[in-house]
């Protein structure tokens, strides 16, 4: 009887554990669909980065495979403008003080400057190969655009709309981010699993650190070993 009860208890526990392991929703539902609406352009074409213009309450949506960028009113869920001439639009970044946004156009290797008042492209800046993610360092009036295949980071002066610097790397460049607290730009060098830090004052790389699980272990092991041998040498 006791054996049977234990078996039953074990069976119930095992079932609960398995249910927890394989349930797609073990912690409860985290999101709930509110609405959906159609967008212009052909179906089946890939989208890319989105960003929000909090001043106008616009959602800016880059659509890589359709060569379009949508300006969507978040209050009404209506598309207020379809920006063309953004061929292969991947990245999109808003510059609030100038009422402009910038698209990374991977198909013609340009950075598009879009005036939100005119709702059109007003300038295109030639860049390296496959511009992708971008970030805006507001206090420096600089936009950083990763040229993924060009293994570069283009620095745009948004007041002049000119590329004032191009940083070259020996790796494809991933999505950059500006940290407003540290006042630094961070960049993932994705071929090498390296986290790079750029000082926007000088546009110099001031740090490179491993990110991957094994690379970090190896880096710490190598560093600790070097420290160990250095100390041993000093003691001798």
């Amino acid at each position: 009887m006791r054996t049977k009860l234990l078996s039953l208890q074990f069976g119930v526990c095992a079932c609960m554990a398995l249910a927890g392991l394989f349930s797609p929703n073990a912690f409860g539902q985290t999101l709930k669909q509110v609405t959906k609406y159609d967008l212009p352009g052909p179906g089946g074409k890939r989208f890319d980065y989105l960003t929000i213009d909090e001043d106008d309450h616009y959602l800016l949506s880059a659509r890589l495979a359709a060569g379009q960028t949508y300006v969507i009113d978040l209050g009404t869920n209506k598309v207020v403008a379809t920006i063309t001439d953004t061929s292969g639009a991947e990245g999109v970044e808003y510059v609030p003080e100038l009422k402009k946004f910038y698209t990374s156009n991977a198909h013609d290797n340009t950075i598009g400057v879009v005036d939100l008042k005119q709702m059109k492209v007003v300038k295109k800046l030639k860049t390296e190969s496959k511009p992708d993610g971008s970030t805006y360092a507001a206090p420096f009036h600089k936009l950083y655009v990763s040229d993924e295949r060009g293994k570069a980071e283009a620095v745009v002066d948004v007041q002049k709309d000119e590329i004032i610097n191009t940083l070259l790397f020996d790796s494809e460049t991933g999505m950059p981010q500006y940290d407003p607290v540290a006042r630094k730009v961070y960049l993932n060098l994705q071929d090498q699993n390296i986290f790079a830090i750029i000082d926007p004052v000088t546009d110099q790389v001031i740090g490179r650190y491993p990110v991957g699980k094994w690379e970090t272990t190896a880096w710490h092991w190598t560093r600790n070993t070097i420290v160990h041998f250095s100390r041993a040498k000093e003691m001798n």
């Binding site: 539902q29 985290t30 609405t35 959906k36 967008l39 052909p42 989208f47 495979a65």
Partner: peptide, 29 residues
Amino acid sequence: IDLKTHRLYTPEQEEDGKPAARMVVYAAV
């Protein structure tokens, strides 16, 4: 993410394998 409303926006290019072009809005639970 709209950080004021905590709503998520995701564009979809497919619906059950068929071509689509739409924006889906989610609220955080």
